[in-house]
Design a protein around this nucleic acid. Structure first.
Lengths: 335, 335
DNA sequence: CTGTTAGCGCCTTCAG
DNA sequence: CTGAAGGCGCTAACAG
């Protein structure tokens, strides 16, 4: 079913059909001619060909979004925000796990190189990000980086990272903790550094010292969280509280403590960054700091779709301040 | 950078460049001509335009996948499987939350109507599914339905649903339970009926009766699980075990039991369908039946991409039999 | 063996 | 107020 089939059926020219379909305001057309066209469209169930449109308009209505792991509920929330805004803007989202990018034949890479997407949202820090990015950069596909700057021309969207760890640390401090360890995320990531800064500042302001051994870096997975937490606990026997930069890692930390026959919060308090529904239903309900993840996804789509967005900017999502969600994993120290 | 730019730079015709790019085997070309073309491609960083290719080839390399809720880890696992296979087939996946489909201007609908996607994978049962489906059906976009048949021409992919509930019920029966309730999913869904059947059969085989009040239907969310479980518990005071058709709902059920000051598994045993990482870290580690979700996602992509797949078939994923994962939420009844 | 040509389906001038 | 025509970038068939 092409536009000229409709034109023929309605006894008009293709151009008229095109204008009817696209609601061209400048088109003055006889009332019943329009009706005839509309009828043909409806009866023949015409829908404009997507590829032809993209070719003509040099725009696909598609946004590529690369996240580390679609299974992680934290990233799911970002995706939800992105979906919502994309829907409102009449765009669809192509999602990819970071892990499938190394494939040279990756369709996503082809799309990015060949104008097949209008924009790219990248949760940076993955091993393979560089590849996509280099490609996108050279082709000048509008790009926004989530949370972590890379050495490239792209807009950066940040969460109030240092505020979040400050809030968490202040809370632990107010509970009476002084030896507060950090289960951080990847050392090379911008947001890790910001969160680390928030923690250090809060500690300093309270006159507490932190030594090098009280922070350890790892991936935001249960397994890695468990291993890293174990390491941290062993290296710092006097530590009474643990600040986790990611809820998922915190779940592993919880496990690590329990594995050693210790209890949360009695023997070790835990506070994690990022709030998820499930936090309330864990073996020990986790006290967290909620971050505006949904908003971040939404904002990223807006930015990447907005022609006026320059490269190299930085936007911090602070529509909602990070919010402490008190549950059961943090309490006054028992020693 | 178009194909003729490259042709000019290399002093050949566009057709030659096209053939080089597409590795046309029948092309006999001078070794150094080929090198010249390749050099131009590399230096000018040429990548073929995606829209033009799609237009010409009538295929987009895109698959649309609609799931109820990207945040649900169960669905995330399906998506992961889909991603993996799509990557291997050189396709990308457009993901959409079911909730964004009502928007008339939805880009996804346009794409489906206008040949913008090569296939559609739909987790059926959502309120708005009908819309997409009708569209896809009329346009004969290859479609595969996940888990639940709708009244339409589409291939259906199923999990071993009745086996799963049989296994779960048998396990509870073997523990000594006789009054086993069911926290089911949407009543109208095919897989709900299959799971219900598995449960009934297992009960019958064990000579146990089930009465109408011992099954209740709800959405796979924590909140709904909690509400439905409460209802079930109140209506069946003698019930000692609960079989949940979805882990996420089971988490709500756990909460419901605890809200009433009762304990799992002492006062009520719980077994849930679908295993997720987090199940091990909940307030009571959930005993589950693991289903091949990843495989289902992978298979759905294969089927939708395979031209030889007929409409109206049914494929059951049984590469891996459902597997009981024993944790702590089920034990012998105390009464 | 390589180059020319003719559309794929659409939209946007520009004539009529 | 409506129609005709060109071209977006690519590739498959045909000439040279």
């Amino acid at each position: 079913m092409t536009i000229s089939d409709i034109a023929k059926a309605a006894g008009v020219s293709p151009a008229v059909v095109s204008r009817v379909v696209n609601r061209d305001k400048t088109l003055r057309i006889g009332k019943e001619t329009r009706a005839r066209v509309q009828k043909a469209i409806d009866e023949l169930d015409y829908a404009p060909n997507a590829a032809a449109r993209s070719l003509r308009s040099a725009s696909s209505g598609l946004i590529a979004m690369v996240v580390h792991d679609v299974t992680n509920p934290v990233y799911g929330e970002i995706l939800r925000g992105a979906q919502q805004t994309a829907g409102a803007l009449g765009k669809a989202i192509i999602v990819s796990d970071g892990s499938h990018l190394d494939d040279r034949a990756s369709r996503l890479l082809e799309l990015i190189g060949g104008n097949g997407v209008d924009g790219l949202i990248l949760q940076a820090g993955g091993v393979n990000s560089d590849l996509v990015l280099a490609r996108a950069g050279r082709k000048s596909v509008p790009t926004v980086l989530l949370q972590a700057a890379l050495d490239t021309n792209a807009h950066l969207v940040c969460l109030p990272d240092s505020r979040a760890t400050q809030i968490a640390t202040d809370y632990l401090l107010s509970l009476g903790h002084t030896r507060i360890g950090c289960l951080a995320t990847g050392r090379e990531l911008t947001f890790t550094r910001n969160r680390e800064r928030g923690w250090r500042q809060a500690m300093e302001l309270a006159g507490q010292s932190v030594d090098a051994g009280s922070i350890v870096y790892g991936h935001p997975s249960i397994e890695d969280g468990r291993a890293s937490a174990t390491q941290l606990i062993e290296a710092n026997p006097s530590m009474t509280a643990l600040l986790c930069f990611n809820v998922v890692a915190a779940i592993g930390a919880l496990q690590a403590v329990q594995d050693r026959g210790l209890r949360v919060p009695d023997d070790l308090s835990i506070v994690a960054i990022h709030d998820i529904d499930l936090a309330d239903h864990l073996s020990v309900p986790l006290t967290t700091v909620a971050m505006p993840l949904f908003e971040m996804g939404a904002r990223a789509v807006e930015l990447v779709s907005d022609k006026s967005t320059g490269f190299e900017g930085t936007t911090t999502i602070d529509t909602r301040d990070p919010e402490l969600v008190v549950r059961k994993s943090a309490a006054a120290p028992s020693r």
